[in-house]
Simulated scan of single mutants.
Amino acid sequence: MTPKVIRLIATTINDLSDDDGWAFLGDVGSLLQKKRPNFDPRNYGFQKLTPLINSINRFEIEQRDSPNSRHRLIYVKNKVKFASKK
């Protein structure tokens, strides 16, 4: 995992985060694809984005119950404030 990829993920989370710094992982994945169409977690040895982000010690992951279904929603946050929001 290169520092450039980690920075891309961190800035993407920052772009989407709420006031508390949390961003919905599905939105993070979508924006990563828009920013870098060739971005794929499998290129880094991971089947999905969640384990890839989990493997980087710079991010927190939180699972939340969805009010409308049995599925859990996954949110991600930068552990350290990466860059100020515009």
Rank of each mutant, 00 (worst) to 15 (best):
A10C: 04
I13H: 02
D19Q: 11
I9F: 00
K77H: 12
V76Q: 07
D65Y: 10
P51G: 04
D15H: 03
W22C: 07
G26D: 03
P51L: 08
K4S: 13
F82S: 09
K48R: 11
R7W: 13
N54W: 03
D27Q: 12
A10Y: 01
N43D: 10
I9L: 05
K85Y: 10
A23T: 03
F82W: 08
K81H: 15
P41R: 03
Y75E: 04
F39H: 01
Q47H: 08
D18S: 08
L31I: 03
K34E: 13
T11S: 12
S66R: 09
N14F: 08
S84R: 12
T50A: 07
S55T: 09
D20M: 15
P51C: 07
L31R: 12
K85W: 01
D18P: 04
S17H: 08
R7V: 13
R72N: 11
L8N: 08
P67G: 10
G26W: 00
K34F: 02
K34R: 13
E62Y: 02
A23W: 00
I56S: 06
L31K: 07
L31C: 03
L16A: 00
P37K: 09
K77V: 01
T50R: 11
D40A: 00
K34Y: 06
F24G: 02
S55L: 01
R70Y: 01
D65S: 12
Y44Q: 14
K77A: 10
K86M: 05
G45V: 06
A23K: 03
I13G: 01
Q47N: 11
T2R: 14
L73V: 09
G45Y: 09
R64L: 13
R70N: 14
Y75L: 15
I6V: 11
D20Q: 11
D15V: 06
P67M: 13
T11N: 15
W22D: 12
F39V: 04
P37D: 12
F59L: 01
L25N: 04
L8S: 04
K77I: 05
D40E: 02
T12G: 11
I74R: 03
P41D: 00
R58K: 13
R58V: 06
L25W: 00
V80Q: 13
P51W: 05
Q63G: 14
T2V: 03
F82K: 05
S66L: 07
